[in-house]
Amino acid sequence: MRIDGRKNNQNRHIKITRHYTRYAEGSVLIETGNTKVICTASVEERIPPFLKGKGEGWITCEYNMLPRATQVRKVRDITRGKMDGRNMEIQRLIGRALRSVVDLKAMGERTIWIDCDVIQADGGTRTASISGAFVALVDAVNRIHKHIPFSIYPVREFVSAVSVGIVNGEKLLDLCYEEDSNAKVDMNIVMTDSGKFIEIQGTGEKSPFSREDLNDLISLGERGIKNMIQVQKESLKVDSLWIGTGEEI
């Protein structure tokens, strides 16, 4: 039996609250168990210099963990005078994941900034951020569409992420912090609704793992991601009608 009574192949309880803040074009509070992340999407009618003249948009991300999101206070980056390497790695991952399912040319010459702020951490903050940020992104894209309709809807398919691992010889889905900190193998998987992989980050924390272990963990992750995408779809309901059409609207 796991710490919170779940089965090995069971996600933590997932809750997505849309329109969580007032001003952002898209905003979501995503809760996966005791992990809580606020994800906002802000639209700017400009693009980075490296995209000038290419006729396409950009999606980028900033990720941060509030000082008391964890059991021990974490010093802010601005106080330290430099950016935390872990934060940088995670925000790049979130940006890659979202860009992979968006037609940037169809989006037009604009930038969507994704901000993921962890207000309470209990493992899986990067995977929760990706899943919540996608919903915030869709809300922002739909806000643009209401004012300046797209000829082709930019979001091609859903994307989500989940953690898996091997803890005390057991293969587990959606690790909480205590499980993650004791994992022999720790892995984060990012996938699309059609079952395609965007990223697999897997590490043998304490010892190597076999190809059979890898296959089992990927299958476990796929199950968890399907569950998360179903929650995303429920939260968006009719607002996701255009996703995946790839046709003129």
Score class of each variant (00 low, 15 high):
H147V: 14
E31K: 05
R22D: 15
M65F: 02
I200G: 05
K36W: 04
G221E: 08
K36G: 02
E44F: 11
I189M: 13
V238S: 14
I225L: 05
V102I: 11
G204C: 09
S240L: 11
G55F: 05
D213I: 02
E178Y: 08
D77G: 03
D77M: 05
F50R: 07
A24C: 11
E178T: 07
D216R: 01
S235D: 09
S210I: 00
F209L: 08
P208F: 11
R18Q: 12
L137W: 05
N182D: 08
G26M: 01
G81P: 10
D77A: 14
L217M: 15
M65I: 15
K105E: 15
A97N: 00
S160Q: 07
H19T: 13
N142Y: 09
S42I: 06
I249P: 06
P49S: 12
V238E: 15
E247M: 13
R6I: 05
M191P: 04
G169A: 00
K146S: 14
Q201I: 02
T245P: 01
K7D: 10
L217T: 01
V167S: 01
E248S: 12
E248L: 12
K196R: 15
T125M: 04
S181R: 10
E179I: 06
G95E: 06
G55W: 07
V138W: 07
D213N: 08
G108N: 12
N182V: 03
I148G: 05
E205S: 09
K233M: 15
D139Q: 06
G57K: 02
S235N: 12
E212V: 04
D216I: 00
E45N: 15
T111K: 01
E178P: 06
V43L: 08
A121S: 14
V135H: 02
I3Y: 13
K146R: 14
G224S: 02
T17M: 13
S194G: 12
V102F: 11
N182W: 00
W58T: 08
R86S: 11
A136C: 07
L175H: 04
K171F: 10
N168W: 00
R68A: 08
D213W: 03
Q201D: 09
Q10I: 01
T40E: 02
S131H: 04
E56H: 14
N188T: 03
E44C: 03
R12E: 06
F134N: 07
K36A: 07
G165Q: 04
E31M: 05
G57S: 10
I59A: 08
L51M: 06
L29R: 03
Y63M: 12
N142K: 12
V118I: 12
E205R: 02
Q10Y: 06
V162W: 00
T60C: 15
I119S: 09
A140C: 07
M83E: 14
G246S: 09
G108R: 12
D213A: 07
V164W: 00
I200D: 01
Y177S: 02
E109T: 03
